[in-house]
Structures are given as C-alpha cells and as structure tokens.
Amino acid sequence: MFQNIGEIALLFWSTIRALPLVWRQRAKVLEEFHEIGNASLLMVAVLSFFLGGVIALQTGPVLAERGLHSAIGGLVGISMAKELAPIMMSILIAGRIGSAFAAEIGSMRVYQEIDALRTMNINIVNYLVMPRLVAITIALPMLVTFAILVGWLGGATVAQVTTQIDVPFESFFENMKNIVGIGEVMHGVFKSWCFAWIIGVVSCHQGLTTRGGPRGIGRSVTKAVVNSIVLIVLFDYVLTRLLLH
C-alpha cells in the first residue's frame, strides 16, 4: 500500500512538472475533454435533477409541518452546492471516466504499446497521463457547476408540484439567495477540482501498473474505481473540515 501511495505521489509530481507542455498536447486534451463531457452530461443532468428533487421531497414535508417550508430553498441550495453535487458527480465520473482511463492505459500496457512508446523515447507522463489529468480537472468542476444548477432546478420543481410542500419557484429561489452565495458554489467547485486530480492520478497509475492479460485489465479498472471513491470520501471530510475555517 505504501509503495502505491509513493508511486501515486511521484506520478502526481511528474504530471505537475509536465504541465508546461500542455499546449503541445492540446489536441489530446480536447479529445479527452470532449469524451468526458459528451459521455457524462446527460447522466449528470438526470442524476442531479432527481438528487435535488429527492432532497426537497425528503425535507420539504418535515419543514412544512413545522412552518419552516420557506427554508427549503436554502437547504436544497446549500446541500447541492457544498456536498451532494461535488461528491456524487465525482463518484459518477470515477465510475465512468476513471474506469476508462485505467482500461485504456492498462490495455496499452498489456499489449506492449507503452513499451513501444518508451523505445521511441516518448515520455509516458507527457503523452498519456498529463492530457487526461488536465481534461478531467477542467471538465469535472464544469460538470459540478452544471449539476448544482440542475439540482436546484430539480428541488424547486419538486417543491412547487408537491402539495405537502407547496413552495412556488420564486419563493424557493428567493430563500436560496439569502443563504447560498458564490462562496458556497465555489466551495463545491474547489472540492470537485481536488477530486478530479484524485480520479485522474489514481486511475492512470492503476492503468500503468496493470499486469497480466484481460483479467489484469479488469482488476485494474475495479481497483481504480474503488480506490478513487474511497479517497474521494476521505478527502471530502478533510477538505470540508479545512474549508469550515
């Protein structure tokens, strides 16, 4: 385990050092960026709409019973912005994109494509890891921002159409405006930025250390997703603690 942590830290550092070459690899960054956005946008929209809706549905009637139904906008707003959108979208992207990173790089390793690159003196980090990491660190915060907005919309829709809550759109967003500011949104976006690095580095590392044939690739994909999710939840707590102050 400690060896893995050391290797991941080294890969992270090598990728940081490769960042000045990002312009040269812009075509690959764009390709990956398109892949991440294209593959995830619809899923993100559906997931976050219903996530916002279910929070409204769970908390709205309880608040309404106590005469606090006007607070629902703030509650949905702050839950989506600071916690649910960043963590749920990151877990979704770990499953969808982290697994793809590990599978693509893992199969390249198994089928000697990475060895071929090395014999051509092509730097693996510059060619394979850095473009993926740059793409995911741009795409995930954008997806999370989108998820926050759609989640709010989902919460507001459910709050209006559910008779036990019965909070109109305008009141929902009026209340939300009093509680949720740009700082709360940035809180979530910052966390998603950190999670993007975790997904990218862990998944690429897992791909690069793949051994064996197709079974080895499968094992790497599973480990990439599981390890990313565990680290995301762990870092979510740490970052939330730090950001409290």
């Binding site: 390249m108 000697q112 060895d115 071929a116 014999t119 051509m120």
Partner: peptide, 24 residues
C-alpha cells in the same frame, strides 16, 4: 536512435497506421 520491432507489432490501436508510423 534505437528501435524495437515487437513480436505483436505493438502498434497503438487508437491511432491510424499512418499516425503510428509517423508518431516518433
């Protein structure tokens, strides 16, 4: 300048033959 021709060819499957050949 050194080159290795792998037993399997080890061409990059995500690139065309032309892109593979011109990769270096």
């Amino acid at each position: 300048r050194m080159a290795l021709v792998f037993q399997s060819g080890a061409l990059l499957n995500s690139l065309t033959v032309g892109e593979n050949v011109g990769l270096y």
